[in-house]
Amino acid sequence: MEDDVAVSLDLRNYELLWPAALFASEGERVLRASNSAWEDRAIWLMTEALAGTTAVTDFEEVPRQTNVTHQDPWTSEPLEGMKTGPDRRDWFTELVNRAAELRTAAAPRPYWPQRHGSGLSHDGTTPRDSQRDFARIVSEFADRGYLVEVFGEECVDDPHDLPDPSQAIDRRLGIPNLWPLSPESWDKETFYGLIEVFHDLVSRPRKREWHNWNSCGWHYSEFHNGPARILYRWKVNQLLREASIEYKLAAEGEDLGRLVAVTDDARSQLVYRALNDSPPDSTAGVRHAIALFRGRDASVDSKRSAIFNLGRILEDRRDLIKDHLLKKDEGDLFHVANRFDLRHRNAGQQSEYDEAFLDWIFWWYLATVELTNRLIASRRPA
C-alpha cells in the first residue's frame, strides 16, 4: 500500500510566466502520464512557465522514488510501497495544485534611464516600440518550438526542404516576404494582421528531446494549439494594454483570435455570458452579432446588422418578455428598433443620430438577450 506524504513547498522562490490556470491544466496533464517520461515533460513545463531555473533545480534534488520494501514480521510476505518521504511526483503535484498561489513574474522596477527618460523600453536604451515587442514575443514562441508544426525544424540526420515561413504567412495574410520579421517595415494594418495570423499558427509542443549528434539541439513533438493560443492571447493582450492600444484578441466567439474593441470588465462579462449561456437555437445569432459589433473594422452598417440580429432573437422571445415585463415595457423594447433606422428601412424612421446611439442600443439588447437566457434556463427541468 502507499501512504500519502505531505510536501511543503516554499512558493516564494517561484514566479509564473504563464496564466496560473494554464500552468495548472498542463501540469495535471503531465501528472496523468504513467511512464518515466513524465519527469522530462514536467521539467519542460517548468522551464517554460516559471521564471529562472530555481523550480527545475529544486525538482531535480527531490528523490525520484521513495518506495521501500518492508518485511512483515508475522508473515513471509514483504510489504511494498511504504513511503519514507515525498518523491518528485508528490513535489510536482503540490506545485500544480497550488498554482493559484504563485506570484506572476513582473518586469523589474524602472532603472535610472527609464526613471529619467521618456517612454523608454525595459532595456533603458530605446523608445518603447510595440511592433518590436511583438516581434520579440513571436521569436520567443519560435525558440520554444511553437512554430515547428507549421514551419518544420532542421535536423542533421534528416535533411530535407522545409516549408517557407513567408509563404505560409502570405497564404493567410496576402502579403509576401514577412519572415523573418522586420517590425520597422510594417504599417499598422500589417502589424495587426500578423497579430491575428500568429494566433492561428502557434502550437505548444508538450514533448522535447535533445539530439546530441553534431549539436543538433532540441526536437519538439506532440503539438496542441489550445494551450499555445491561450498563452499567446495572454502575452499579446498584455502588450496591447501596455501600449495603450484599444484592441485585444478575442478569447471566445465567432471572432476567436481576432482583434476586437476593448470594453470595460462589466461588458466583457456580459459578452462572455451571452456567448456561453445562449440556448443552441440562438447561439449562432448571438455569436454573429457580437462579432459584427466588436470587430476592429466595425462600421456603422456592421453595428446596425448586429442590432438587427439581436432584435430577431428578442422577437422570437417576445411572449417570454411579455410574461416577465409590463406590456408597455415590452412594447418600448421593440419600438426603439422599429422607430429608428435599425431594422425596417422606411421614410418615417429617424436616421440622424450619433453613432453612440448604436452602442447604447446594442448593449441594451445584448443585456436583454442575457436576461432572457436566464429566464429560459430557469424554466428547464432541474
Rank of each mutant, 00 (worst) to 15 (best):
L16E: 02
V262E: 13
A356W: 11
P110G: 01
E254W: 03
E246H: 15
R109C: 02
L162V: 09
S118E: 07
A291M: 07
R233G: 01
E352Y: 09
A49L: 04
D319S: 10
F293G: 04
L375A: 14
K303V: 09
L333E: 00
R144L: 14
E101W: 05
A55D: 00
V150M: 06
D161V: 12
R229C: 06
A251I: 14
E355V: 09
T84D: 06
D90T: 05
E189P: 02
A356C: 08
L239E: 07
T75Q: 09
T368R: 08
L333R: 12
T57W: 12
S130P: 09
T57G: 13
D187R: 07
G27I: 04
E222D: 10
D281E: 11
R343I: 10
F151T: 15
A250T: 02
N225E: 11
G27A: 03
K248Y: 03
L320C: 08
R29E: 14
G295H: 13
L270C: 05
E60Q: 15
R233C: 01
W112L: 12
Y111A: 15
C216R: 11
N276S: 03
A337E: 05
S130K: 15
E184R: 14
R144D: 13
E39D: 10
V96D: 01
D40N: 09
R312D: 07
A55R: 05
N373V: 07
E80F: 11
P227T: 04
